[in-house]
Design a protein around this nucleic acid. Structure first.
Lengths: 257, 257
DNA sequence: CAGTGGTCTAGACCACAGT
DNA sequence: CTGTGGTCTAGACCACTGC
């Protein structure tokens, strides 16, 4: 053993097989369409049981690197996955990780019926009573984000009595209501009159707009529209599905222009 | 068997266990922090081998619903995963899925040394010769997207001779060069002078700006900055990592306001 | 120290799709 | 028909860690 293998936490065999094959693919030695040896062949090669190989291959399929067909075999995938994992932090966490003091204030709060024209906001489409809020989030002394939120009171009746002073609606929901799915829509928009007033930005200045719809099983839970002023805010999405956190990675060490 | 179970493709046992437990968690019956029965207990309950349970639990950990600690046991995760899968389509695909005719044109193209101030664009930071391009993508008769791209010629020497007329650089790279990771940064920005001219938009109008850095193993491959005019363009990110494709889902059936 | 998860085995049966 | 993946079993050993 060399000194180079410092504190190697004994990677499991299926992990090593996975890394080997992923390495062959990512390096280009196994081009798109390449026929990967069968599980039995690989098991023989690695001197292990077939199930150990199977575990590695299953994970490679999940990552989109490999496609498998019965009887035909396993092949390097041709559809290079054009998806990435988008990390959507809690706003408080986000602000505090910038080293700033977080604070939020409830600008408006009402319990009312869902209005016409808001039907498409909740998903699946819903009607009935909702809690509707406008929330402003601050980073230090500056407005950081303006949030419009609707909470379905049919899904979350306890939201009717919550004052959301200690904890903002988003965080409150996250720790209170279980949810099974969410959809985010991200776009750029010019500041409208309300944003100009509440975020203290110039009219029509560019803003990042994030709409989030959350549901549980087949019931709508909440809708949120988050507006971040200017180009000060950015989202980061990384590819490589939990690819064992490349320590020497590009995530650090370069400034954003 | 009831008539309701139509064409059920015999879900595997570990899948059924997974669905059961996910159902308990997502419905709230098992709240955050709930102690999930041990693998042995579950195996007894389901009358199966421990490994079958293990497979389900491992997947639940991957999805962020469950945390496991040795000796202590398995618990419903408190950190509800705030990540989503962002789908980043190829521009041509995107345009054509809108029912429009796609076209791209190379506005500028040079092989040159990487300039000072561009050092942070490639990741890991690199120097040396690059192919630098400005590309304009059209949807029908309208400009759709402006792309600034840098390709490392050390990683992709064959990019020096490619004309990128038949196929745009992004698509060409996707089908030519294997890559292991990518990072996207998404933000809103006002249109600068170049964007105003080439995308035919008003000065300072809001644009969606996507920067993509791609690398292979530990070598930088390419950098791309894509600018989409106005609020016409949006990205969509869905939560629930391949959560067995909710057919009756919110992905369809509601118009975007 | 004992219970838990993490891993691995050497088999087995089956479904399925190419040949 | 046959080779492939997909699943499952009934064990086993180990590492860790909370009791």
């Amino acid at each position: 053993m060399t000194a180079a293998s410092r504190a190697a936490p004994a990677p499991s065999l299926h992990q090593r097989i996975l890394d080997d094959i992923a390495g062959h693919i990512l390096s280009g030695r196994w081009p798109v369409g390449h026929h990967i040896p069968s599980e039995l062949e690989l098991a023989t090669r690695y001197g292990c049981a077939r199930m150990t190989v199977s575990k590695a291959m299953t994970e490679l399929v999940r990552r989109g690197l490999v496609e498998r067909r019965r009887r035909a075999g396993s092949f390097v995938s041709r559809t290079r996955s054009r998806s990435a994992v988008l990390d959507i932090p809690d706003i408080r966490t986000e602000v505090e990780s910038l080293g700033l003091v977080y604070r939020h204030e409830i600008l408006q709060s009402r319990c009312r019926m869902l209005q016409r024209g808001e039907a498409g906001l909740l998903v699946p489409a819903a009607a009935g009573r909702v809690r509707a809020l406008w929330v402003r989030h601050h980073a230090g002394s500056r407005p950081f984000c303006l949030e419009f939120r609707i909470i379905s009171l049919e899904s979350v009746p306890e939201a009717a009595d919550e004052r959301f002073e200690a904890v903002a609606p988003g965080a409150w929901l996250a720790q209170t209501v279980p949810w099974s799915g969410a959809e985010h829509r991200i776009q750029a928009a010019g500041a409208d009159e309300r944003i100009v007033r509440w975020l203290e930005v110039a009219p029509q200045s560019p803003c990042l707009l994030i709409e989030r719809r959350t549901w549980r099983q087949d019931v709508a839970v909440t809708f949120a529209r988050l507006v971040y002023p200017g180009d000060a805010h950015q989202l980061i999405a990384r590819f490589s599905p939990d690819m064992t956190h490349r320590a020497t990675g590009p995530a650090s060490g370069h400034g954003i222009p």
